[in-house]
């Protein structure tokens, strides 16, 4: 039954991804002094619609995410931000409109870098050792030894080299989420979607993870899309923040604060206040 469901949903992916010539070229990601040459995927959504059982969740949304940018999507729960992310990843088929993903300079049919997602829960395979969980991110690539080597390198990147042979059950919540990050990064993604990946972590672990994600993003230059309801997390990490309300983009803000950003920076605090005011003011019932 499970596999039946897979078979049904699988074809949803390649459909909306066809290349169109009329999409404007991606502007270079601004204000990233130390960023590596971008190998990110640019995302364009045109008049995107999605409804579940006749109930519209996304209503005519237009969006352009430049390659290599770090965009955060914030909004109240139920505003459609997670659905937006799942549509971009191809986990759901849109009811209307289209989504275009464009790889970096993909000239003569180079295989595009993969899109990866980090979920709110780590979703590690409990029956696979940490290193084998990371090789899941390399499904169908290279020899066994090669995959293992790359997985160990990715684990080193998130600072978990010494846990490679352990079972996931023996790790702490933060460590598990770092393994999930290594799994997402090991395939060198062009687009990394983060669906509230730090929501279940304690405050200090969260800050550590935010720094880790920022550092890796700067080094690898993938396009990052972070969905969160934590506005301070959004302003700390993103160079652009989209506030989603009732299935549309209500606010599109640039975060012009240089990196590395200091926690408690007044500019960030002002921006956070503005977004929170907007979110709180947007609810007429309050």
């Amino acid at each position: 039954m499970l596999l039946d469901a897979l078979r049904r949903e699988a074809p949803a992916e390649p459909g909306p991804e066809t290349r169109l010539a009329d999409i404007p070229p991606a502007p270079a990601p601004a204000r990233q002094p130390a960023q590596a040459a971008s190998r990110g995927i640019a995302v364009t959504a045109r008049d995107l619609r999605k409804s579940f059982d006749g109930h519209a969740v996304i209503e005519g949304l237009d969006l352009f995410l430049p390659a290599g940018g770090f965009t955060a999507v914030v909004g109240r729960s139920g505003c459609g931000k997670s659905t937006l992310l799942r549509l971009i990843l191809g986990l759901e088929a849109p009811t209307g409109g289209r989504i275009l993903l464009e790889g970096p300079e993909s000239g003569p049919r180079r295989s595009d870098p993969p899109k990866r997602i980090m979920f709110q829960e780590p979703r590690l395979l409990p029956w696979a050792r940490v290193v084998d969980n990371v090789t899941v991110g390399l499904s169908g690539h290279g020899s066994r030894a090669e995959r293992r080597e790359r997985a160990l390198a990715a684990l080193a990147e998130v600072g978990l080299s010494d846990k490679a042979g352990q079972w996931p059950a023996t790790l702490s919540g933060g460590q598990r989420q770092r393994v999930a990050l290594a799994r997402a990064l090991v395939g060198r993604p062009g687009l990394l979607a983060l669906d509230e990946p730090l929501g279940a972590l304690d405050a200090l672990t969260r800050i550590g993870m935010q720094d880790l994600i920022e550092r890796i993003w700067l080094a690898q230059g993938f396009t990052a899309l972070l969905v969160t309801h934590d506005v301070s997390e959004a302003v700390a990490l993103a160079d652009r923040i989209l506030v989603v309300e009732a299935g549309r983009i209500a606010l599109d803000l640039r975060v012009d604060v240089p990196r590395p950003r200091r926690r408690g920076d007044p500019d960030l605090a002002r921006l956070e206040g503005r977004i929170l005011d907007h979110l709180l003011g947007a609810e007429p019932n309050l």
């Binding site: 979920f119 899941v136 499904s139 169908g140």
Partner: peptide, 12 residues
């Protein structure tokens, strides 16, 4: 959730 993960990560 694990099955979805496997699918997103391109498992056959």
């Amino acid at each position: 959730a694990l099955v979805e993960m496997g699918r997103v990560y391109g498992m056959s």
